[in-house]
């Protein structure tokens, strides 16, 4: 059974012309767990993964598998299985032939092709051309490709995109199983809700910078749960809340109160004689917390009442990064690990 090695991103930056896609990013992904790599579209997730896989050159920093760059891996397909977004297949080639080509190039036994097709349930479509495949089928084929070398590390970019509900349930169980076998599993997504049931840890980035690294539980406690309350007489309700010294904002469905306990709000409304027609704990604390983290810096700062170290450090990172970008408007031409082995 292949065991995973940690993925280590260390001080990674990538500039495309004047645009900074990834900005001094550092995090570690440990084996034996499913780690979610989250951030809104354009946050730099795909760029980070492409640097990690040797497809894009880093401007600064390193991204390694147990200390080795992708290009330095002796047998890359047997160490790392990767499926990237924009699943790239020649439309005129069959699923089986795609896998056979990867297997040939990566030195993997041809017999693995049939095995991985079985694993992802693609055997009935194996000899059809990919041009006619649905998004879900392409995702499954991409996943089959990652499993060819039975690798200890899996890097999947938006693997849930385009899957039907049955497929989503299947892949969640599958990823858990792979992590349970001791593999390192990194799954990117722009939707927290998409992965929150299947990941153990999360790495959240926004605008190329790290904003949170830890467990989902930590993320949840970062944002205090709040209560949504509404009354036909909102001014009276607001007055009652103010009398108790509670902070609140006005939302679409009522007043959002910075107080975790609905009972307390219900009681003070009752005492004040204010009629209520809604009183509930805000459900999406996790999603809220996520959106705050990846949203505008201002939102994070407002939110950071008690102890919110992430927004603060993110703000610091902004300043340093902006300075750095100003000093180096064009990316320095970093010497790369030579791939000119054709000369041998």
């Amino acid at each position: 059974m292949p065991t995973g090695v940690p993925i280590e991103i260390d001080g990674l930056s990538k500039h495309f012309g004047g645009v900074t896609a990834v900005d001094d990013l550092s995090f570690t992904v440990q084996p034996g767990r499913v780690t979610g790599f989250l951030g809104p579209n354009g946050a730099g997730k795909t760029t980070t993964l492409r640097v990690l896989l040797g497809l894009v050159r880093a401007s600064q920093g390193t991204a390694t598998f147990g200390g080795q760059r992708y290009r330095e891996l002796e047998r890359p397909l047997e160490t790392v299985g990767a499926a990237l977004e924009a699943a790239s297949f020649h439309p005129g080639r069959t699923a089986r032939n795609h896998l056979a080509i990867s297997a040939a190039a990566g030195g993997v036994a041809r017999s693995r092709v049939g095995e991985v097709l079985d694993l992802v349930g693609m055997t009935p479509y194996a000899d059809r051309r990919v041009g006619g495949f649905s998004m879900g089928m392409r995702q499954r084929l991409g996943l089959a490709n990652t499993l060819l070398g039975d690798p200890g590390v899996l890097v999947l970019d938006e693997p849930i995109n385009g899957l039907d509900p049955e497929g989503i349930r299947w892949i969640r169980g599958f990823l858990q199983q792979l992590a349970g076998e001791g593999r390192t599993v990194l799954v990117s997504s722009h939707l927290l809700s998409e992965v929150q049931q299947s990941v153990d840890r999360v790495v959240i980035i926004a605008k190329g910078r790290l904003v949170h690294e830890g467990t989902l539980a930590e993320l949840e406690t970062d944002s205090l749960p709040r209560v949504v309350v509404d009354s036909p007489d909102r001014p009276a309700l607001a007055a009652a809340l103010e009398a108790e010294g509670l902070e609140f904002t006005t939302g679409r469905q009522g007043l959002i109160v910075d107080e975790p306990d609905p009972a307390r709000i219900g009681h003070l409304a009752f005492v004040a004689g204010v009629e209520l027609h809604a009183l509930a704990r805000q459900k999406s604390a996790l999603e809220d917390s996520f959106l705050n983290l990846v949203g505008e810096q201002g939102v994070s700062a407002d939110d950071g009442g008690a102890d919110a170290p992430e927004p603060t450090s993110a703000t610091k990172a902004t300043d340093t990064a902006d300075d750095a970008a100003a000093e180096h408007p064009s990316p320095p031409d970093e010497p790369e690990p030579t791939d000119g082995k054709g000369a041998e």
Partner: peptide
Amino acid sequence: HQTLTPTFLANPHRAV
């Protein structure tokens, strides 16, 4: 067709 991605994943030595 962006097959450079699987090509270079299977063999990262581009000159080869």
